[in-house]
Design a protein around this nucleic acid. Structure first.
Lengths: 176, 176
DNA sequence: GCGACAAATGAACCTCGGTTAATTACGGAC
DNA sequence: GTCCGTAATTAACCGAGGTTCATTTGTCGC
């Protein structure tokens, strides 16, 4: 566990989650960083037409927060919802940022966190820009081998960026 | 100009660029951060089948570098090429990271940079995941009104994620 | 002006995902 | 076991983008 994660756990406030429960919703103002102690969450956008697109699945050990909400105090651009029951730890990001101004170690822990975040987004951008739905699905299965047992096909489809029907077709294509 | 940008300009090494010239190519190991003083660059992926996808256009004032190359010293995941002649300033990221370990101000400048980077990627992820090519094209024109005069239709298409022919069709649809 | 090359558009056909709706498979509650 | 509700699959049709190639437009060098 990184220094940053330890910090969050140490100074944060625990919150138990039931399946389906929201940590925050798109449009909320919530500038906490969340550490996933146990369970599985999903971060997702709701479009104007009601369609849902999943940014990422967040298993144990993940750290998450809406970047613009954390940094600028804007409204969250996505929703965060528990898929299983579990426990998250919340820590106000502003406190971290403030404390970092006088604490080199903390500042460097923040740097490490933001670097990891940046790398993750860079990879996701590549996947979305350059890979087909089929490739993205394959990568999802590789990266999180247990995902098929933990979430519905509809959620996997929303992550890959297609409808559940299309994902079903993709699975059939991949099988042979 | 942010503290971080000033730092790069102050301590970096200038490099003039001709149109078409590469700053680095996919697969290179180049852990410099680049500040675009003048000109316009594109950051793009080349897929196995030779197709090109543009991550972002980088006009004057932009900061860029391959996150995994900067942080982990891995090979660059994309290429960086000048579209116009111009000048960039290069600064080894490792030096910054090292110096940040003993300099709170520098560390916080780095935090600000990484935060901005994270926000930008978060927005792009949303666009790629939730918007249609048509919407993405409209946003591009909004965000960079002069882009149509500065780059080819092929490059705009590679940014939006479609073929030049498809972009042509999209333009026709949007006109009426 | 002309000629040559690149860029953009247009047309014809194909593929794949979206849409809608029906069908099948699964998982408790009883 | 049956019943019921949900999830997953399948099918049929549509539309948008990909592919290929031809045509037009634009832009230089001269």
């Amino acid at each position: 566990m990184s220094r940053f994660q330890e910090l969050v756990v140490e100074h944060g406030r625990e919150k138990a989650l039931d399946p389906g429960e929201h940590v925050f919703s798109q449009g909320d103002s919530d500038s906490n960083v969340y550490f996933v102690k146990t369970g599985l969450l999903k971060a997702y956008y709701i479009r104007a037409d009601g369609k849902e697109h999943i940014k990422s699945f967040l298993p144990e050990g993940s750290i998450i927060g809406s970047m613009v909400a954390l940094v600028d105090g804007d409204a969250c651009t996505f929703s965060l919802q528990a898929l299983e029951d579990g426990v998250v730890v919340a820590l106000p990001y502003a406190k971290l940022e403030l404390a970092a101004q006088n604490d080199v170690d903390l500042a460097n822990a923040l740097i490490a966190f933001l670097s990891t975040y940046g790398k993750r987004k860079e990879r996701r951008e590549y996947e979305l820009l350059s890979l087909s739905p089929e490739d993205r699905f394959a990568i999802l299965l590789e990266t999180m081998p247990d995902i098929a047992d933990r979430v519905s096909q509809a959620d996997m489809a929303a992550y890959v960026g297609v409808t559940p029907q299309a994902l079903s077709r993709i699975k059939r294509r991949m099988a042979k």
